[in-house]
Simulated scan of single mutants.
Amino acid sequence: MTVDRRGFLTGAATAAGIATVAATAGPGWAEPAPAPIITKLPFPDTAALRILVTGDAGTGARPQWAVADAARALHGEQPFSFALGLGDNVYEQGPWSDDDAQFSAKFEDPNHDLDFPWIMVQGNHDNSSILPGDGGWLLRGDHEVAYHARSPRWFMPSRYYTVPIGALVEFFVLDLNPIAAYLPPLFAPYWAADGQFMTEQAAWLDRALDESTAKWKIVCTHHPYLSNGSHGNAGQYEGLSISPIDGTHVKDFFEAHVLGRAQFLLSGHDHCLQVLEPTGATKGTRQIGSGAAAKTNSGAHATDPARITPSLYENFTDLGFMVLDLTQSSADLTVYTVDPSTAQPTNAFQRRLA
């Protein structure tokens, strides 16, 4: 089904109040239960890490399998330490329970033999309500947190969390869905931009970044701060100026709590591959977008010069993923595109970023 995204979002801005009033007392807007403390497989604490970076993968369709086949080929040649999954893990509307068969069809089966931990991020499609990707049923994402206890590979102990790996790197995984939803929780104070969930997440992030002693600090989100893809920059999402669905609160969150405090911001959401240049606005933080692990933008991208950020590499037509190699002295990024008919990876870009 093809949906006119801009038309839907304009209508959603009008309908959001109705939808949230109806749902305020329902499960979509309730407060989540505290996440249990679960022991998982340890992440490798080595002098060098090789990290598979994917996003927007969870379709279960042939393109996802082709990308996973390409990753398997590389893993056989030079093993990955672990992977990052940057959200939209279960298309199109997210899981219905923590034992939903979609977890097998859209994660376990396509990623067979990629047997290492996967650091997972919540996406808007993982929290769908009325229409796919509207982000309107926030507790749906809690099924993905609960799946953490069922899978030896899927790592999501909470909706937001850190993964420190020795003195080398610390990953800060965020959940910005409450302030990026196309059906925002306008009448659910817990999920509001200034509500308990986002306030506690901001305080946690500030403290975690301040206390981190890692060489590399990497923030992982689904929604980007900057994107030359069709979704666009935070504060201008979808080319709209209708708050809050234009991502105004997302922009404010990044600017208050992330930019200038981490070297890299990794995001999905746009189904493309982007390595953007740091700008004055990002205070030295580099935005990287990897969201082409199952779908592409079909060439769609920003055309307004005011919305375009200078890039080292961008690709809006090909499937693909990235590989981040970290040592104490270097951060090297490689972008691979994937031919969906042959599942062959092609090294499309390689650069030492720091």
Rank of each mutant, 00 (worst) to 15 (best):
S241K: 11
F264T: 00
Q236G: 02
F116N: 02
D134C: 10
F82V: 07
L41C: 03
G260L: 08
E200H: 13
G291V: 03
P164E: 09
G229T: 08
G76H: 12
T282L: 05
R72Y: 07
H143C: 03
L74S: 06
T346I: 11
L259Q: 01
V275F: 01
V173T: 14
D210C: 05
Q236A: 14
A306C: 04
M156I: 01
D56P: 06
N124E: 12
T46V: 06
R72L: 14
V275T: 03
H125W: 08
R62V: 11
R261K: 15
E314K: 10
P340C: 13
P44I: 11
L174Q: 04
S243M: 05
M322G: 02
A281V: 03
T162M: 10
P278N: 11
Q122C: 11
P157F: 11
A66I: 07
A33G: 07
F253A: 02
G268W: 04
A146D: 12
S330V: 04
P185K: 02
H249G: 00
G141V: 04
G135K: 01
G141C: 10
T221N: 12
A73G: 06
A343M: 12
W204D: 05
G17Q: 10
R150Y: 13
R351I: 08
Q274A: 04
A208P: 00
L84N: 00
G229C: 05
A256Q: 13
S329W: 03
T327A: 13
W137G: 00
N124R: 09
P224E: 06
E314I: 07
P32S: 07
S341D: 15
D175L: 02
I130K: 06
G60P: 08
Q122H: 10
P244E: 01
G133P: 04
G7W: 13
L209P: 08
T24Y: 05
D246C: 03
H143Q: 12
T221V: 15
P79E: 03
D113L: 14
A105K: 06
W154G: 00
G299R: 11
F107K: 02
A68P: 01
W204L: 12
V21N: 09
V67I: 12
F321Q: 10
D332E: 14
N347K: 15
D142K: 09
A203T: 13
R307M: 12
D69K: 12
L186H: 09
T327I: 14
V250H: 00
L49K: 06
L174G: 03
N124T: 15
P63E: 06
V338I: 13
P95S: 14
P340K: 15
A202Y: 09
A15H: 09
S230I: 04
H269S: 05
E314V: 02
A61I: 04
T334P: 04
V335S: 04
T20V: 05
H223G: 05
N347V: 14
S243D: 04
P117D: 08
F103Q: 02
I119Y: 04
A16P: 00
G11M: 10
D332Y: 14
F107W: 11
G17I: 10
S243A: 15
F197M: 07
T334N: 13
K40V: 07
R307Y: 05
I165W: 06
L353T: 08
S151E: 09
E31D: 09
T14A: 15
A101Y: 11
A105T: 09
L176G: 01
T46M: 11
Y237T: 00
L259S: 01
E108F: 08
V67R: 03
S158D: 15
